[in-house]
């Protein structure tokens, strides 16, 4: 499973755990805060991904940046992925 698939699955799992509904057609252009996850949900998603992927890009960044779209979010995880 690639990073994008893992992220999309984690989004579904986060929404399910929070008892909320999120967009089903999640493409790169979707604005994160309009996806159905609020900022608390986004924070939980990042924490969940840290457990599943073993890294948290937001804690690794030298220059802090918060993504606006799903595409940017995935790109950040791809960029900070530790070399195997």
């Amino acid at each position: 499973m690639n990073v994008r698939e893992q992220i999309l699955r984690a989004m579904d799992a986060t929404a399910a755990a929070m008892g909320i509904r999120i967009k089903t057609d999640m493409d790169d252009s979707v604005v994160l805060l309009e996806s159905g996850l609020d900022s608390l949900g986004f924070a939980i998603l990042v924490a969940r991904l840290e457990e599943e992927l073993g890294y948290d890009p937001f804690s690794l960044m030298d220059e802090p940046f918060y993504p606006k779209t799903v595409g940017e979010f995935v790109e950040i995880y791809e960029r900070y992925r530790p070399l195997a």
């Binding site: 924070a43 939980i44 990042v46 924490a47 937001f58 918060y66």
Partner: peptide, 10 residues
């Protein structure tokens, strides 16, 4: 609490 780079803590 658990540290969160987004919300401070969860």
């Amino acid at each position: 609490g658990r540290k969160s780079p987004i919300m401070g803590s969860l």
